[in-house]
Design a protein around this nucleic acid. Sequence first.
DNA 1: GCCGTTTTCGGCCCGACTGTTTTCAGTCG
Length: 594
Amino acid sequence: MSETPAHVGEILEHIAQLLELKGENPFKIRAYTNAARALESLSEPIETLVAEGRLGEIEGIGKAITEKVTELVTTGRLEYYEELKDSFPEGIFELFELQGLGAKKIKALHDQLGVSSVDDLERICKEGKAAELTGFGEKTQTKLLKAIEDHRKHAGRFRINVVALLAEQLLSDLRAHEAVGQISEGGSFRRRKETIGDLDILVSSNRPEEVSGFFIHHPLVEEVIVHGPTKSSVRLQDGVQCDLRVVKPEEFPFALVYFTGSKEHNIRLRSRALDRGWSLNEYRFTVAEGADQPPVIRDEKELYKSLGLDFIPPELREDKGEIAAAEAGTLPDLIEWSNLRGTFHCHTTASDGKNSLIEMARAAINLGLEYLGIADHSKSSFQAHGLDTVRLAEQVAEIRELNASKEFQESGFRLFAGTECDILKEGDLDFSDEVLATLDYVVASVHSGFTADEKTMTERIIRAIRHPQITMMGHLTGRLLLSRDAYPVNIPAVIEAAAETGTIIEINASPWRLDMDWRWWPLAKEKGVKCVINPDAHTVFGLQDLHYGIGIARKGWLTKADVVNCLPLGKIEAVLAAKRSKQVQQKGILNSEN
DNA sequence: GCCGTTTTCGGCCCGACTGTTTTCAGTCG
């Protein structure tokens, strides 16, 4: 049985939770949590690491956990875990997801009232029994019932577009308040994670109560969870939790770093501070006796500088090597919105889009883009009204006509003709080579047969990637965030194949996808694979999703040199044609040798 | 359980808020 790293990580997380219930040493518990996280970000198959005995090289994984992971990966089972699990019911894990409920309270509920699931807890609370436990009371019981309701309603995370809309409104209203000095978003939203747990907002003010009061009475607020002078939490529309912190102006840079996170990044910063004899918290440096005085810190950049580091953009603050790079002065010059010149993979009313060709083109012009690639679905995606050969030819003709039109000629804008070509069951393509050759480029995507196993799916995708007409690989894993899991696919193997063949891999910028995942881009970049940021837009508004794609590219350490659609007209054409001409050249060489 | 220019023992981030307490434990980020 094969164990994916995520699965191994999940088991380590569960071990940590069970150890907590047993009241184990908190540092031992943390060791398991840290190890789980370390495994999440592996850039090669865990089986390889186990087979080559290199698990122990990963920071946070020592002798004991190496043995356990090895047992798990090689036998598909971990005796230690099975034994631990036997002392608690299966449903206990779900209880950890309830807000306000931690290991201590779960243990009390389990030991004294036999609570072993969320359903049990709901019954116990409704019967009024939870309030009778020591350490519990009426309020706790009411809060637990509310937490259960919230948990069922919206499992806790949100797609970035949902949070972005709320953030924009709240930040702009708070910014207009006269007691507000500096203001910024923080947390995973500022780091542009693919999904967001809650929205963090940080404000500097000398009148914190006024700001907090304004905040909890904002029209977007549906419920106040906690409300203090400097820290408040509310539930917004759509169920998004939003935390506001108010600090003094001189504390703002410290607080901004602290509340942007990630937690792991912050721990590294604290340890660097300690090396200099300074203790770093969310407000200031505290200087140890005999240590040098830290410089005055006016912004984040100066804070990083004081720790011997270049400024680290929020998207990189994930403890994935950014500290070392900042120390060495080798942080990449990350791609920015203004670098984008065009994009590919957009839909029109010809397939399942909601806007016409010309409407999409004009929206792209309004965004300041020089070119737009149209990639409507191919015929096998009949649910999306995919184009057959005839309709595709008509669309290509229409695109050529528009390009020759006075409007386009004068504005210097250009449409590229493409397709989002289905990768069929065996890795065959949905159009013949002759048809594909009439297009400027081809996006290849999987839209069916998601239940195949990893080996089959990987072979299927790699076969498509090896096809000379495939320019770029669309939404590699097919995931729909918070809704549908990725189909299984060996991503390092696909990256390898893309590197060999010169196939571009897409960052699908739709907030539902954000696929290929940012964690894989450093590997792809190392292998020389180029990226294309595509909105997969089905409406003119969908083009705006490119902003999320930029965030993900930045999280993946990508620069404008790594992203092909930063190239202007005049240069992008050669990139689209490169793979085909390489094949033609190779064929030519072969022919001349014959 | 992990880790090591304080290195094989003794650390491991720490402050705000809540609720049940009467001085603090639990949870969260």
